[in-house]
Simulated assay, not measured.
Amino acid sequence: MSNWPDRRILDLLNIQLPILQAPMAGASGSALAIAVAKAGGLGALPCAMLTGEQVREEIETFRSACPGLALNLNFFCHQPPVPDSAQQARWKQALERYYAEVGADFSAPTPVSNRAPFDEQSCVLVEQMRPEVVSFHFGLPEASFVQRVKASGAKVLSSATTVEEALWLEANGCDAIIAMGNEAGGHRGMFFSEDINSQIGTFALVPQVADAVRLPVIAAGGIGDHRGLVAALALGASAVQIGTAYLFCPQAKVSPAHRQALDTASASDTALTNLFTGRPARGINNRIMRELGPMSELAPRFPLAGGVLLPLRAITEAQGNSDFSNLWAGQALRLGRHLPAEQLTREIAAKALEQIAL
């Protein structure tokens, strides 16, 4: 499969297909990355919720299965917030009735829900493990870290949700831009604004970003099959990043309750919510989103909001209940199919090439 109309991402990242697997923290690991890489796409390992040792183990597993193939390590680069005990107390109080309902101990210390930002240890890990690609979410880390990552030989990607963010990423060291439309599942990559009304759809975002920057553009959001890939290329993207479609694959690490929600939710039943982490992220509507509203001013800043929900999740998920769980998914979820990730990747690429050739 070499007759792609735009080879910039293929040549930049040394991959065969213009398909990148979204690095979905908590839902993907080496198994999914291996399958996508073997098909010719770019596999990704999300690192924000893993220890350094866990990241090394995942990399070694990937390298053993995919010698010579490119790998993307993904990191968050948010600024950790200063904990606000009063706000935490107000947020927990808003959930007290749920604690009583499920039998959770409201007086127990609140667990810590953490997402580690890219730091010195992360940078040293990149320098030692030398992944071919390093991608970031929520902008970029400080300039010295970006320089060190690039000096290690890695290509640098990051997500932009507006043209202004894309221009900033280009000016600050990115090798390619992921244009993340509002349809995408999981956390918004937004970093210039906290206003979710600033977020626009993939079909509007991709051509504007492609016109504004000189770098190759990767389209993300609402792309679940070959038609999305063809459309993205027509809009000026060089490749696509696919997330939700891979959640249906057996290599994804999603809970039974999450799988059930993916199989039964309608395409219109997702919303942006800050309840689970403190940052806007798209997921399938569930009870807590409906009863509290998907966006709440009470939710502490990312990633502190999730700690209060952990006791509720622990009890209800054990019962197969997703009332208090984040069910990340994008608006194209109804395009999902229960196929092995390698087969899915190859089929999307093959059918896209057939359509391009018409």
Rank of each mutant, 00 (worst) to 15 (best):
G320M: 09
P294F: 05
A314C: 00
I315A: 02
A252G: 04
S266M: 10
G307L: 05
A261Q: 02
E297N: 14
H258W: 14
F302N: 04
S325H: 03
T270P: 03
Q260A: 15
D269Y: 11
R313H: 06
T264F: 03
P250Q: 13
G293P: 08
L298N: 12
L298T: 11
E317F: 00
N326L: 13
G306V: 10
I315M: 04
N321C: 15
S322E: 12
Q319N: 12
F276R: 10
Q260W: 05
G283S: 10
P311N: 08
R290A: 11
V308D: 13
R259L: 10
N286C: 05
L275Y: 11
M295N: 11
N326P: 14
N274K: 12
V254T: 15
E291K: 02
T264E: 15
F302M: 02
N326Q: 13
H258N: 03
P280M: 02
A265G: 02
A265E: 11
D269W: 09
Q319T: 00
P303I: 09
G320I: 11
N285C: 09
P250K: 14
A305M: 06
Q251A: 09
T264C: 12
D263K: 15
P250H: 13
P250S: 10
T264I: 06
P256D: 01
E297F: 11
N321I: 15
A305W: 12
S325E: 10
N285D: 01
D269P: 00
E291Y: 04
M295G: 06
G283W: 07
Q251C: 02
R301C: 07
G293V: 10
N285K: 15
L272P: 05
A267Q: 14
E317R: 15
A281G: 15
R282K: 07
R259V: 02
P303Q: 12
A299L: 04
G293N: 13
A257C: 03
D269H: 12
R290F: 00
E297M: 08
M289H: 03
S322H: 10
P256T: 01
L262A: 04
P294L: 02
L275M: 12
